[in-house]
Simulated assay, not measured.
Amino acid sequence: LCWNVSPLSAAGPDAAELKASRDKAINFLKNSQNEDGTWTFSEAAGISALVTSALIESGVPLTDPTVDKALKKLVSFCQEDGRICSARSQHSGYETAVALMALQDANQSGKYTPQIKKAEQFLRSLQFDESKDIKPSDLEYGGAGYGPDGGRPDLSNTVFMIEALKAAGAKADDPDIQKALIFVSRCQNLESEFNTSPAAAKINDGGFYY
């Protein structure tokens, strides 16, 4: 069987088509922004942060009116304890993590460093570890949940926390990231050094669960 693949097609999508698709998506996001700088609804800090990061990482400058308005709104979500979300949010961990990453994307001049540092400390405080009387042998150890009253850690929120800590400058050997990776390993269907739970080998296919 012979495939007739040109070098150009093998290299990936056509650059002009890719740019056109990106520009179309950027315009859609710009046109769907609320007047107050958010997306979807006025207290949606998490969704708004994700869109803000998408625009910045797609090359939209910080001086663009849409991005500028979005960043000002994200800063307005900053709470005294470091979380970045509506005061009524029940997802403060997730929302703070993605908001931190958006502010870091825009932090070329160091303008948002104070908010980022406070958000980082808030996220670290959510981790289930010795500070909450959780032992390394406990399955919850190292994980993070939706917030201080989240009840339990889960894989999604823990991964968002890891990504946010990395964005804030944490290295791979950071103690909190190392703890989080223990939790992540225990969410995998795979027996390992850290995952010796009874469920680890039941499927043992390497997949992950929430």
Rank of each mutant, 00 (worst) to 15 (best):
D105M: 06
G142C: 08
P65T: 05
K132W: 00
R152W: 11
G147T: 04
D105N: 15
R83F: 12
F77R: 06
Q104K: 15
G59T: 04
P153F: 03
A99F: 01
E130A: 14
Y141N: 05
S156T: 14
E80T: 14
E140W: 12
T66H: 06
D68C: 11
A99P: 01
E130P: 00
M101S: 11
S89T: 12
I84M: 15
K117A: 10
Q108I: 09
D138H: 13
L100S: 03
P114S: 07
T96A: 01
A97W: 03
E120C: 13
Y94G: 01
V98Y: 10
I84R: 13
A97N: 02
D133A: 13
E130M: 04
L100Q: 02
F122C: 02
S137P: 00
R152Q: 12
D133K: 14
C85A: 15
I84W: 13
F77A: 05
P136G: 09
I116W: 05
F122M: 04
F128Q: 07
K135Q: 14
V67M: 11
A97R: 06
A87L: 08
A106G: 10
A99N: 01
K72P: 00
F128V: 01
S109A: 15
C85I: 11
S58K: 05
L71Y: 10
F77Y: 14
A144C: 15
G110I: 04
S89Y: 02
A102V: 03
S131Y: 01
P61H: 09
K132T: 07
D81A: 07
S86V: 04
A106F: 06
E80L: 10
I134C: 14
S137F: 00
N107K: 12
S156Q: 10
D129W: 01
A119Y: 09
L139F: 11
A97P: 04
S92N: 02
P136D: 07
L155E: 04
T63Q: 14
K132M: 13
K73I: 01
P114I: 06
Q121P: 00
A87S: 14
A144H: 08
I134V: 15
V67G: 09
R88I: 03
D68A: 15
P61K: 13
M101N: 05
G142E: 06
D138K: 02
C78G: 06
T63L: 11
T96Y: 00
Q127I: 06
S125H: 09
Y146F: 13
C85Q: 05
K111F: 08
Q79G: 11
F77H: 08
D149G: 10
C85W: 00
R124G: 04
E130K: 14
M101T: 06
D81T: 03
N107R: 12
H91R: 12
K135L: 13
T96S: 04
S76A: 15
T66R: 08
Q108F: 06
L74G: 02
V98S: 06
Y94K: 02
G142S: 08
L103N: 08
V67C: 09
P114W: 00
G147E: 04
D64S: 07
F128E: 07
D64Q: 08
D149P: 00
E130N: 08
K72Q: 14
